[in-house]
Design a protein around this nucleic acid. Structure first.
Lengths: 240, 240
DNA sequence: TATATATACATGTATAGACAGCCAGCCGGG
DNA sequence: CCCGGCTGGCTGTCTATACATGTATATATA
């Protein structure tokens, strides 16, 4: 009936996600029953049911027939198979993202970086190190090298406002990417930044990206193992 | 009402997935409209709508308001973790592969496995644990659960000769896969099998596979961090 | 011819009502 | 005290109906 710009079930979903984000409902809590939400929000039970069902599929809620609906206690997840922006990803979860720029300068290329970019070792390339926080909790350390020939004004950017990823994809759309995933123990300095204990295993995702066939960026992303996991769904490449 | 153990909307989903798998509808084809399916299947439009909506979310269909519902064309994105056989992979490197079967039996399904397979907890499922070696060095611990309904003679196989992966894909081709990657510290028993030190971070790849929309296998693969890494190349899904 | 308008049909959303299935907790009998 | 059945509350599903919204096609108009 009453059609807003946003459908009712989506508004219900957002309202519930908001209440969880605001802390009114915390992980493990039982939220209002469908009948209670019907009364409180003035929409039909089917609409409430759809909202709750979708939030369950999305991993926000857990439902037990005969008992109730609960706030899920799940780790945050990073999309693995999609090259995307961590700020956006965090925003999608209704959380706050903040990036801290630890390094932003031109420096002589390490050997492997020079090889990737097809430069002689020692030629200067751009180097940035950022610490990304989700609700103030460090969730990703981003150590990036960029070929100056494709992003001449990289050093002039304000990466607390716009992530390097967004900037780079804007000026040089990704045509290809290579990922390498490893389990590592970060260095002492990295551990301190990420606020993790010694011996805590971390995921390290190394990504090289190309634009129009030319290498643009080499980035190493470190995720604290206890706080993050990478996931994705795919169809098989061929059949086997 | 619901006269089967399986809800109507799920039977509708499976019927459509089957027709696509059988080739009656091929990628790009327009399938029957909701109204036509209502007449053909004798269920309400809301039920048809739910089935089609979920298949759309799952990437099987594409819907355009005012026009119709179409079989989705193959995803343009290549698989990062190509689902493949470790024995083959090792052979490609010119090395020798050997698998040791540590466990192979039917046992009551743990809760998460039961949920994946749509069974009640405690129902027996097949469970296998294999240690894969590359030139005698342990490189992967494979802990697998299989739905007996899709691989009745799983326990009769000789997995030193043919990996579970090869056997399963032969009897139930993979239609979909979900991957979760974590950095973990293995248990003491697992460390001993893999011959690694305490505090050595390992990659844990959890993979669930479906065949014709039905869950077939849930496998946890542990790779010693110092010996293995996962890599892949992809084209970006979209831009973000 | 080019452009508006009407119409048919598709999907998208919303509703009230109904019944099934499951579970925790209460309560009574042993 | 323990055990079993009853029961109220909750989620899961299904239906019939209605209206909203988007698209393509046929038709009328400038």
């Amino acid at each position: 009936m009453n059609q807003q710009l946003v459908p009712h079930y989506q508004r219900v979903k957002r309202m519930i996600a908001d209440r969880i984000a605001a802390g009114s409902w915390t992980p493990g809590d039982r939220i209002s029953s469908e009948a209670e939400l019907v009364k409180a929000l003035g929409v039909s039970r089917m609409t409430i049911n759809r909202a709750l069902r979708e939030l369950t599929i999305e991993g926000v809620l857990t439902r037990v027939q005969g008992v109730g609906t609960f706030v899920a206690t799940a780790k945050p997840q990073a999309a693995l198979f999609e090259v995307r922006n961590i700020a956006e990803e965090i925003a999608e979860r209704g959380h706050q993202h903040r990036a801290e720029v630890l390094t932003l300068k031109a420096e002589p290329a390490p050997e492997d970086i020079a090889a990737t970019f097809g430069l002689k070792p020692g030629v200067k390339v751009f180097h940035s190190v950022l610490l990304h926080r989700e609700n103030e909790l460090p969730v990703q350390l981003e150590d990036r090298y960029v070929d100056p020939r494709h992003a001449a004004d990289y050093l002039q950017q304000d990466f607390t406002r716009q992530t390097p990823y967004v900037y780079l994809t804007a000026i040089a759309p990704i045509s290809e990417a290579e990922h390498i995933i490893e389990a590592v123990l970060p260095s002492a300095a990295e551990r301190k930044l990420l606020k993790i204990d010694a011996h805590e295993p971390c995921l390290q995702l190394t990504r090289r990206t190309w634009s129009a066939g030319k290498p643009v960026s080499h980035v190493r992303l470190i995720y604290p193992g206890s706080r993050y996991r990478l996931s994705g769904r795919i169809a098989p490449k061929r059949e086997g």
